[in-house]
């Protein structure tokens, strides 16, 4: 089976400062990978480079997603191809309701795939069904996008977008940050409900806690812009005990 995502020797940075230094990673359909690492190791940069944020430059290596090279694709083309980034800090967009946003997004993606747009009634039914499954009331769909949402509501809203868009690969960038334990559980349940044999996930986190609720198949340790160790779920528990010192030290000596 060909990999859903294959990153090979990726070097990338911003404003001439290298951040990713030869990162390699391969995710098969159905797999959940976790990337853990200390602050500044380049975890968020990886999520931005994969999703195509302006300002990040790839200097070497390649990123293949579902058979396509991501490097020259615009962010919206990557989304249409099935890549989804759940933002660490979801943006507030005043004057645009959550509903309008979801509909515009879903229809843009359907259009981009050459499919018919969804009619208003079907969309409304789908949005209500998916949001209720996440414990969100209809009122949240009418509110302005993320404006005045609590941290937990914003993250839940990201998962709602993921549920609506049904991506091939979801990247969750520190989805656990700023969440209390109840919100974390709700978000994790939403994510788990989306695990599927043809869908991959890349869960980026600083803490092991999230991985109690979203069980990864593979855990990677990232330091100084590359993967320094990979293993099974037990690696996360090990990190929880001994911290990142070993890996940070290693890269300093390297």
């Amino acid at each position: 089976m060909s990999a859903l995502l294959n990153i090979d020797n990726l070097h990338a940075g911003i404003d001439g400062t290298p951040i990713l230094n030869g990162l390699s990673l391969s995710i098969q359909p159905g797999e959940v990978h976790a990337i853990m690492g200390p602050n500044g190791s380049g975890k968020s940069t990886l999520s931005y480079v994969l999703s195509g944020k302006d300002g990040y430059e790839v200097s070497e290596g390649e990123m293949m997603f579902a058979g396509q090279s991501l490097a020259d694709m615009a962010p919206e083309e990557r989304a249409i191809a099935g890549l989804f980034l759940a933002f660490q800090y979801p943006l507030e967009i005043p004057g645009v309701t959550n509903m309008t946003f979801l509909k515009t997004s879903l229809n843009a993606i359907l259009r981009g795939r050459g499919e018919d747009e969804m009619d208003a009634a079907s969309f409304l039914r789908l949005a209500r069904e998916k949001s209720r499954a996440l414990g969100m009331n209809d009122e949240m769909l009418k509110r302005q996008l993320n404006v005045g949402f609590s941290g937990g509501e914003k993250k839940r809203n990201e998962i709602l977008q993921m549920a609506m868009l049904e991506p091939k690969l979801a990247i969750l960038d520190e989805t656990d940050s700023g969440l209390d334990i109840d919100a974390l559980k709700t978000v994790a349940e939403g994510v788990n409900a989306l695990r599927a044999p043809d869908r991959g996930m890349l869960v980026i986190t600083h803490y092991q806690r999230l991985l109690d609720f979203i069980k990864p198949d593979v855990v990677h340790v990232m330091a100084a812009g590359r993967i320094v160790k990979s293993g099974g779920p037990e690696l996360a528990l090990e990190l929880e005990k001994s911290g990142y010192a070993e890996y940070v030290g290693e890269t300093v000596n390297a």
């Binding site: 999703s51 195509g52 944020k53 302006d54 615009a74 962010p75 919206e76 990557r78 989304a79 249409i80 989804f84 980034l85 933002f87 979801p90 943006l91 967009i93 005043p94 004057g95 645009v96 309008t100 946003f101 515009t104 997004s105 879903l106 843009a108 993606i109 981009g112 302005q144 977008q161 868009l165």
Partner: peptide, 22 residues
């Protein structure tokens, strides 16, 4: 970037931000 990462092309994303502002 957030809107483009959700599938909107640049013009549609600007449209939504401007319309939301007004």
């Amino acid at each position: 970037f957030f809107l483009r990462a959700r599938g909107l092309d640049e013009a549609s994303a600007i449209y939504l931000l401007v319309a939301g502002f007004i």
